[in-house]
Write a protein that binds this DNA or RNA. Structure first.
Lengths: 206, 206
DNA sequence: CCTACCGATCGGTAGG
DNA sequence: CCTACCGATCGGTAGG
């Protein structure tokens, strides 16, 4: 390869991210020492610090990689043509649940540890999250323009995210219900309920 | 008073619990040192340890006090007579949101830090939580017996809890929406959506 | 209710 | 002048 980074530099970075995410998801990032991360990676701590400047860099990279995939899902879903808003919403929820299921450790880090990052890094991750929320809110606004006018699109999006995020804290993958079975339940509940929500001080929709 | 605990022993315990809950909610229990707790209480670390044996005892007491109030809410709501299931559900959600709003720090500790407790203590808290969940699931089962038969009462309860729990992570009390305004939105969404959920492999209800 | 400490481990970095 | 690492240890602080 000549000069520059080793061929497996990026592979090492990814391996570290994976193992760190598993530890952080289990014990929390504050409850995990860099020694434990190094040990789980089969590296000395000095080598670990060669790849990532500090613990926050690990937390940030784990979260950013995950939320970047969520952004991609939303962008692709909004670009799909010939879908009714209802169909688009179903598609987006399904894709979201699939990504969460594929990245459970990263998802836990995103929802529980990002808030402890330095403001600057944290804001960058939150900006990514805002785009994801905005994508969902946009479709919800199409389904219920009156709720959008009442500034309820984003709160409703957050309620949807609450159901799904929380799902991944209480469901054990080996349990009687699996994510695949829950996705349509969540979708039916949310889309069905959306028709029943009343804008504050307004008449229910016809 | 003679022998025994000081007159203000219980007051001190409560004061400590309050300050500790505020710190734990802000930085996480793993990210908070007992020195910080002692300082926030205006006590030496040794005095703090006179009131609580260790950090886990603080976390457990904070969580147990909060979930005990949730249990009380559920018991009272189930004992109310002359309510339709729909009315009972609305009442329970409203009471739940009110208690969460009154105990936001304790609520954060319950949802984020209890999982790091030793199994024995954690199970005691989880048993309390299970009673709360069972109460909601019971009313949901009355509203949709077919979903209860499909073992969906508890998953649906967890989706409701997800919306509400998550609400308290993203809403700032000074924001445009407040908990009071969100409670009916959550209730409408959930009760409205409940009618749209299909039991897996079954026909939708008439 | 305090000062004075402990064994151990923390996150992070030195020289080579 | 660079990278990829190592064994050893830094100054401070953790829970108790």
């Amino acid at each position: 390869m000549g000069r520059g980074r080793a061929a497996n530099y990026d592979d090492q970075r990814e391996m570290i991210l994976d193992r760190a995410a598993a530890l952080f998801a289990q014990r929390g990032s504050a409850g995990t020492s860099m020694n434990q991360v190094a040990e789980a990676c089969g590296l000395s701590k000095a080598t670990l610090y060669h790849y990532y400047t500090d613990k926050d860099a690990l937390v940030a990279s784990i979260a950013q990689g995950h939320v970047a995939r969520l952004q991609e899902i939303v962008r692709e879903a909004l670009a799909l043509e010939g879908l009714t808003p209802d169909e688009r919403m179903r598609h987006m929820i399904r894709q979201l649940v699939d990504e969460y299921a594929n990245a459970q450790n990263a998802h836990r880090v995103l929802t529980e540890d990002v808030r402890f990052l330095q403001p600057e890094v944290r804001e960058r991750v939150l900006d990514q999250e805002r785009e994801v929320v905005a994508g969902f809110a946009q479709v919800i606004g199409t389904l219920r323009p009156d709720l959008k006018a009442a500034a309820l699109s984003k709160p409703l999006t957050m309620l949807l995210f609450g159901m799904i995020n929380w799902m991944f804290t209480w469901m054990r993958p080996e349990g009687p219900m699996d994510y695949d079975a829950m996705a349509p339940v969540v979708t039916d509940l949310f889309l069905g309920g959306l028709g029943a929500v009343q804008a504050p001080g307004a008449q229910p929709p016809s």
